[in-house]
């Protein structure tokens, strides 16, 4: 009976992963398809990978995406981590107000967040790449705060007190005592902010200026013309990069555990 249950669990899990990864498999297969059509298999080729570097539209969109994603996720991580440090020391009802406000971008519909930021930006600055960075920080800061804050809350004051009693400056105590403790939270917050920014369409779509295109918005405008197959190649490469990084960090984690044992 136990075995049956276990088998059923694994089958179910396998089906869910098949559901989540099926479109990805389709895209990977399409990246090797020697045909411009999305529906006809024209044989195996590497040509879209070779053509990719010389495709200016795609490469421009890629660099814009990476610039926006990197700068917004780094800034969001700094802003969010300092915010969490502050909120952690606030009086309870002040902290509750801050957390309530932090929930707004998470809870509000993307389309409303995008439109409201666009209305603000058209009034005070112009729409361009910078406005997209600001908008991305706005929706990704909450992920950083909600990843860092629990780590701070589970930390005891005694260590920091001890460090400062022994003569550490607040900055030194932060660097040597607090940061190592909260670092996993900061890292996962950064990774979530990065991923959300990389994958965003709606908010970018409303807050970008004319001529600025990330991969998502470029795709949306080119849908009617048909998709350039080089995009499948690029997406496959990005996905494989993330996959390899995931496996690598995971192997490292396992090795560390063995050493501790």
């Amino acid at each position: 009976m136990r075995k049956v249950k276990k088998g059923a669990s694994y089958t179910y899990l396998g089906l869910i992963f098949l559901f989540l990864y099926a479109p990805i498999l389709v895209l990977i297969v399409l990246s090797f398809n020697n045909s411009m059509s999305r529906t006809v298999w024209g044989g195996f080729t590497f040509k879209w990978y070779f053509n990719l570097p010389s495709n200016d539209t795609i490469m421009d969109a890629l660099w814009t995406t990476l610039r926006i994603t990197l700068s917004s996720s780094i800034l969001a991580t700094i802003l969010g981590t300092t915010a969490a440090l502050g909120i952690n020391r606030m009086k309870k009802h002040h902290a509750a107000i801050m957390l309530g406000a932090t929930n707004i971008p998470l809870l509000n519909a993307d389309i409303v967040t995008g439109i409201s930021l666009m209305l603000l930006f058209t009034r005070f600055t112009s729409l361009g790449e910078f406005s997209v960075v600001l908008a991305h920080i706005a929706f990704s800061v909450p992920y950083v705060i909600f990843n860092v804050l629990p780590k701070l809350q589970s930390m005891s004051d005694a260590c920091i007190e001890a460090a400062m009693d022994l003569g550490a400056s607040p900055a030194y105590a932060f660097y040597k005592v607090i940061l190592p403790e909260i670092f996993p939270g900061v890292l996962s917050g950064f990774l979530m902010a990065f991923t959300m920014s990389l994958d965003d369409f709606t908010i970018t779509y409303f807050t970008k200026g004319a001529g600025v295109n990330t991969l998502s918005t470029m795709l949306y405008t080119e849908l009617r013309k048909g998709i350039q197959p080089e995009l499948y190649a690029l997406s496959t490469l990005l996905f494989l990069l993330a996959f390899v990084m995931l496996i690598a960090t995971n192997l490292k984690g396992i090795r560390k555990k063995e050493v501790v044992r």
């Binding site: 895209l27 991923t195 998709i227 997406s235």
Partner: peptide, 22 residues
């Protein structure tokens, strides 16, 4: 956790378009 957010590294719009194929 990352196995579930990994698909997001493949562009969202492309993934939805792949469903058209399927």
């Amino acid at each position: 956790v990352f196995l579930f957010i990994l698909p997001m590294w493949m562009n969202f719009m492309l993934r939805i378009l792949a469903w058209q194929n399927i």
